[in-house]
Amino acid sequence: MKKKFFDSLPSDWVKYVVVILLSIGLWIWIFGLYHAPKESEKLEVFFAGVVKDYAFEDAAKGAVDGVKTVSVSSAYPWTGNSFDQKYSFVALTASDVVIVPEEVATQTECKRAFAEMTIDTGKPFEQEGVKYGVYLSAERKEELSAYFEFEYEEYVVFAVASSINSGQATNRSFELIEWLLG
């Protein structure tokens, strides 16, 4: 049988190589698919301004239990339509947590976009008597300035109402906000 095996190698070696390559490719794909983060294990943070260091993503990931990825998207405020569009489509629909200057927050119809804030710490941001956001303290802004360019005096943090992490499936948006508030 050993002789037969070695005799077959000149014609069959391609099959062995193909099988090995297929095994590698297939299992990398299957494991990747199986361990891909679920919607509730991903947090998307929107920042209205310039992101200085994306190391924030790793820092934030370690701060909330059960989260596999944190990603940051940003748009610079007051740049006309491009900010408005990104704010509407990315921040208010696809994100979990939004950090915006107070001026942007006041122009947003919070009732339609944000979940009611359940965190008691920090200075609340209210609209029509309902608490939707929390102001970032000066001290915390200073700490977070390693990651974000804070150009405005006041910034408010919100949990997006449509996110499943804002009370629907998990409270991870609020857990991240608690960490952001320090």
Partner: peptide, 19 residues
């Protein structure tokens, strides 16, 4: 898993083309 899979794959080739 990849090592197991490659070993089984090679055995399958040997099995169906030789043994």
């Amino acid at each position: 898993t990849i090592v197991l899979s490659a070993a089984f794959g090679c055995y399958s080739v040997f099995f169906f083309s030789v043994q």
